[in-house]
Amino acid sequence: MGGLVGESRGKAVLRACGCAVAGLFLIAGCAADGTPKGGAASGGPGASVTQGTGSPGASTPAARPSGAVPIPMPPVDESKQPRTAAEARDLLARIIVAEQDLGPEVVRSAPFESGPGRWPVLDESCVWQTEGLPDDVLATSTRHFHIPAGSGRGRVRINATVTVHHNREESGWETARAMEEVLRCPDQKLREGEELKSLWGGALYLGEQLNQWTEDAFTESGKYAGADGGPYPYTWSQAQYGPVTVAIAAKGAQGVTDDDLNAYVAKGTGQMMYLAKQELGKAAG
């Protein structure tokens, strides 16, 4: 990330809070590079190679990770970076997770995918709005999943987002803005009847604490309240590699713990970071 991004991040967040990011992945049973430890549960990303999870017409995605394979931080191959919106959409379709990547109990929600031309903006009143894509974003997509209520547990909501920028500096600024939003708006309104409360965030740049898996890691945690009641646990994690950011948000429910959510967040974010490195990293040797 450029110097201005690092300066903004340093002012935005207390670095001591960043240990929560690395801790999230260790608690969830992942290695420091974000990949699952000791294989995966049946139906998870280590269970089999998943093909064709992108949008119709998209290129076939890279193979999903199998077991605990450490993935180093390869240099970004600039020749692989997308230059157009079409190339960026094709790339994110090969990176973004599908429901089977998160676990056998996870299903698609309706609507499933956000419109490709919309961008979330937190306004001055701490209310989320949508606008057209900003100039620094080539493409973005969000997929919506849930775990149906049952066995004394309420419905868990999970969102996965991949955003492709022109370059690393732009993706770094996206992370910096996310940190500043938490400080500016610890209470946020998602839409009518849905709110996030008491948010706090932390960041770890590559090499800080236990972060060896992403160029910049950021997480926020707090409470979620919606139509099913609350407040319940909420967590969101974003990771950066070159021009790409990947993120998972998980909203809890009755009978769901922070550790439950952390497992899905770590699994999904680690999976997408693995694929981003596969797609954009320079080959070894």
Rank of each mutant, 00 (worst) to 15 (best):
E174K: 01
E174Q: 09
T175P: 03
A176N: 03
A176C: 06
R177M: 07
A178N: 10
E180G: 08
E181R: 13
E181G: 04
L183I: 06
R184T: 13
R184D: 11
R184P: 02
C185I: 04
C185R: 09
P186W: 03
D187A: 07
D187C: 00
Q188N: 03
Q188M: 07
K189Y: 03
R191Q: 11
R191N: 10
G193E: 12
E194T: 06
E194G: 04
E195I: 03
L196Y: 06
L196H: 05
K197A: 07
K197D: 04
K197F: 08
S198N: 13
S198A: 12
S198D: 13
L199C: 02
L199V: 02
G202K: 00
G202M: 00
G202L: 07
A203F: 06
A203M: 02
L204R: 09
Y205V: 11
L206C: 00
L206Y: 07
G207F: 01
G207E: 03
G207Q: 12
G207W: 05
G207S: 07
E208W: 11
E208T: 10
E208H: 04
Q209E: 15
N211H: 09
W213D: 09
W213L: 07
W213N: 08
W213G: 09
E215A: 08
E215I: 02
E215K: 08
D216C: 01
D216K: 01
A217F: 07
A217L: 15
A217P: 10
T219P: 05
T219E: 13
E220M: 12
S221W: 09
S221Q: 12
K223R: 06
K223G: 07
Y224C: 02
A227L: 12
A227K: 11
D228G: 13
G229H: 05
G229W: 05
G229S: 12
G229K: 04
G230T: 11
Y232V: 02
Y232R: 02
P233Y: 00
P233G: 05
P233W: 04
P233M: 01
Y234A: 14
Y234P: 13
W236K: 11
W236G: 09
S237G: 10
S237L: 14
Q238Y: 00
Q240F: 00
Q240S: 09
Y241Q: 08
G242I: 00
G242L: 09
